[in-house]
Design a protein around this nucleic acid. Structure first.
Lengths: 204, 204
DNA sequence: GGTGAACTTGACCGTCTGGTCAAGTACCGT
DNA sequence: ACGGTACTTGACCAGACGGTCAAGTTCACC
C-alpha cells in the first residue's frame, strides 16, 4: 500500500500491526478474522482496508518487518569485529535477546513456513540468514579456526541449535537470553564431548 | 470415533487419511476444505463424517499416529543396545530415515505447534521425545562419557540439530538420510571445533 | 471559514465453510 | 431370499468469512 500517512495514520497502522501480531500469534492466522481485529480495536472495518490491501498483505508486512529488524540487530551486534567465530558468537547473543523481546514472531514464522502462500517468502529470508552464517563458517574453516566440513550443513546446525533453544528455553521457560546464548555457544563449539570429557567412548 | 470397521471401511479410512495428509501438507490445514478432500477422492461428503467426527479430529488422528509411529521406530532401532551414547546415535539414524519416508508429517507438526487448538497435543508428544533423550544424556553425563551440563538443554540441542537438518537437508535437498545422520552426529558429538582443529581461538 | 485530503463508519455482498441428515445402496451371515 | 449393518449420497443449512463502498467526520492549511 503506497499510501501517504499522517502521524495519526502511522499510529493507527502501528496499532493494527501490533494487535494483529498478538492475535495471530496466540490464536492463529486463519482463525483470527479481520472482524475480530477491528472489533478488538473498537474501529470500523474500513479502517483495516484503508491501511492494508488484504489480510494476507498485513501478515506479509508483519513477517517482512520482523525479519528486517532481526537482521539489522544482528549486523549491529557484530559491529566491526573481524574474527568470524567471534562474529557468530555476537550474532547468536544478539538474536537471543531479540527473540526474547519479539516472542510472537517465532510462531508466526513457523506458521508461515507451513502454508504455500507464505512459504516462499520465509524461505527467502532464511536463505539470507543461512548465507550470512555459512560465509562465517567457511571463513573460519579456511583459517583453521574450526574443523573442516560442509559449511552449509554446519551453519544450519548452528542456526538450528539457536532457534530451538530460543524457542524452548527463552520463549518457553522464560530463561535469561544471555544464559541460553552461553549454552548455545558451548554446545556448538564443543559438542557433547566437551573440552574435557570424552574418554569412555561407545561401542557402536 | 469408536466405530467398528469392515476391511472395506478400513481401506476408505486409510484413503482419507493419506489424501488429507498430502493436501494439508502442501496446501495448509485451513485452506483445505472438507469438500476438497471428498471431491478429490470422488466420494460424497457423508463419507468423511462416517469415519471422522470433524476435520479437527482427522487432523489430530494424523498427528497422533505419526508421532506414535516415529517413537516406535526409534525404540525398535535402539533395540537392546545399552550404551546411552550409542542409543542416541541409533535413534538419530532411525529418525532421519523415518522423516525421509514421512515428509508430510514435518510441516503438519510445525503447523500444529502454531495453533492453540493443536499446540498442547504436540507439546505433549515433544515432552516425551525430550524426556527420552534427556535420560540418555543424563546417563552419559553420569558415566563421564560426555561433558557435564544441563541435560535438558543438551538434549534439546541434539533434537534441534536433528530436526533442522532433517528438514533442510533430507526433506529440502533430498540428501540420503544416512549421510545427514553422520553429519548430525559429528556436529553434536564434537561441535564446531571438532576432534582436531581449534587452536587459533577467538578474542571475544 | 472554506476546501480538500486523510481518515472512519458500518451495512452490505457473494462465496464458502464445517457439518447434518433422510434416503438409498452394497454386502454379509443365515 | 431376507434382514440388518456397514457404508454412501448430495442437497441443504446457518453462520462466518474477506472484502466493498457510499456516506460521513476530522483536521491541517490557506
Amino acid at each position: 500500500m503506497g499510501r501517504r500517512l499522517t502521524p495519526r495514520g502511522e499510529q493507527r497502522r502501528g496499532e493494527l500491526l501490533a494487535y494483529a501480531t498478538e492475535r495471530f500469534a496466540t490464536n492463529g492466522y486463519h482463525p483470527t478474522s479481520v472482524a475480530e481485529l477491528v472489533d478488538g480495536l473498537g474501529v470500523g472495518k474500513g479502517v483495516f482496508y484503508w491501511y492494508f490491501e488484504s489480510k494476507e498483505d498485513l501478515f506479509l508486512e508483519i513477517l517482512r518487518s520482523g525479519e528486517r529488524d532481526l537482521r539489522r540487530v544482528q549486523l549491529d551486534a557484530m559491529g566491526d569485529e573481524t574474527d568470524p567465530v567471534a562474529r557468530m558468537e555476537l550474532a547468536i547473543r544478539a538474536s537471543m535477546e531479540w527473540w526474547a523481546t519479539h516472542r510472537e514472531l517465532y510462531v508466526l514464522i513457523e506458521f508461515a513456513r507451513t502454508e504455500a502462500s507464505f512459504a516462499s517468502g520465509v524461505r527467502k529470508g532464511e536463505r539470507v540468514a543461512l548465507e550470512d552464517t555459512r560465509r562465517l563458517v567457511q571463513e573460519a574453516m579456511d583459517s583453521g579456526a574450526i574443523a573442516d566440513g560442509n559449511a552449509t550443513v554446519v551453519a544450519q546446525a548452528v542456526l538450528g541449535v539457536s532457534s530451538v533453544l530460543a524457542r524452548t528455553q527463552v520463549l518457553g521457560r522464560g530463561r535469561p537470553p544471555s544464559e541460553v546464548a552461553d549454552e548455545v555457544i558451548d554446545f556448538c563449539w564443543h559438542g557433547l564431548l566437551g573440552r574435557d570429557a570424552g574418554q569412555t567412548r561407545r561401542t557402536a
